[in-house]
């Protein structure tokens, strides 16, 4: 569940820092529905129609491979996962419009007809492999929602990420790494921005915590 106005976490990292694999567990993107998968992807920062058609070869909606870009996002918290071309028979089976789609399990789940009423929902977006590597930076620079626990979990498995942080702001206030970790432990949803060094972050210098959860 996404809080109405989650606290912001803005992280600046040194060039060369690898953080886009954080996207493999998913981040939440607020979007207005009804909306087709194609339109949803088209609106993502850094994505283009050409990229979606040519580079994104496999799309899962709620764990089911999707061939039709007009498929509407369905469910209260849809999960969309994107991958570039993948090896193996299994990779081919799940590829969009693959002739090997015949080898998927035959039961196609009902993508329930979405309500026509316009509303904003959080779509869990997972980017894998080359797609994450190529588009992750733009996505994080624009900002995503995720959980504090999810970011902590990523940091635990990627110790180099922590040492690459040159500056971290929690709700606009600069924090030391250890304080950032403490705050993440007690925060459910955050609005996360990660930028490579050189990108412009808001100029705040105070270390006092002002955010109240």
């Amino acid at each position: 569940m996404i809080e109405a106005v989650p606290p912001t976490v803005e992280i600046q990292v040194h060039a060369g820092c690898r953080y886009t694999s954080l996207l493999q567990t998913g981040v939440d993107i607020m979007t207005t529905v009804p909306c087709s998968i194609g339109d949803f992807l088209d609106r993502l920062p850094g994505f283009s129609k050409d990229y979606i058609i040519n580079r994104v070869q496999t799309i899962f909606l709620n764990s089911t491979a999707v061939d039709d870009m007009e498929t509407p996002l369905s469910g209260t918290a849809p999960v969309v996962a994107l991958s570039a071309a993948m090896p193996g028979l299994a990779g081919a089976i799940f590829r969009r419009n693959s002739m090997h789609a015949a080898l998927r399990s035959a039961k196609i789940p009902d993508f329930a007809a979405p309500s026509t009423q316009s509303r904003i929902i959080g779509v869990r977006l997972k980017l894998f492999n080359m797609v994450a590597a190529e588009k992750g930076e733009a996505l994080f620079a624009a900002g995503v929602h995720c959980t504090g626990a999810g970011l902590l979990d990523f940091i635990a498995g990627h110790p180099a990420f922590l040492t690459s942080i040159s500056r971290a702001l929690f709700s606009g206030q600069e924090l030391a790494d250890s304080d950032l970790i403490k705050r993440l432990r007690t925060t459910d949803t955050i609005q996360l921005t990660i930028k490579m060094r050189g990108a412009i972050l808001p100029a705040k210098t105070t270390t006092k915590e002002a955010h109240h959860e």
Binding site: Q24, T58, A81, A90, G91, F94, K126, F128
Partner: peptide
């Protein structure tokens, strides 16, 4: 393939 097959 881990993430893809897991997602599927």
């Amino acid at each position: 393939l881990v993430n893809i097959i897991n997602e599927a």
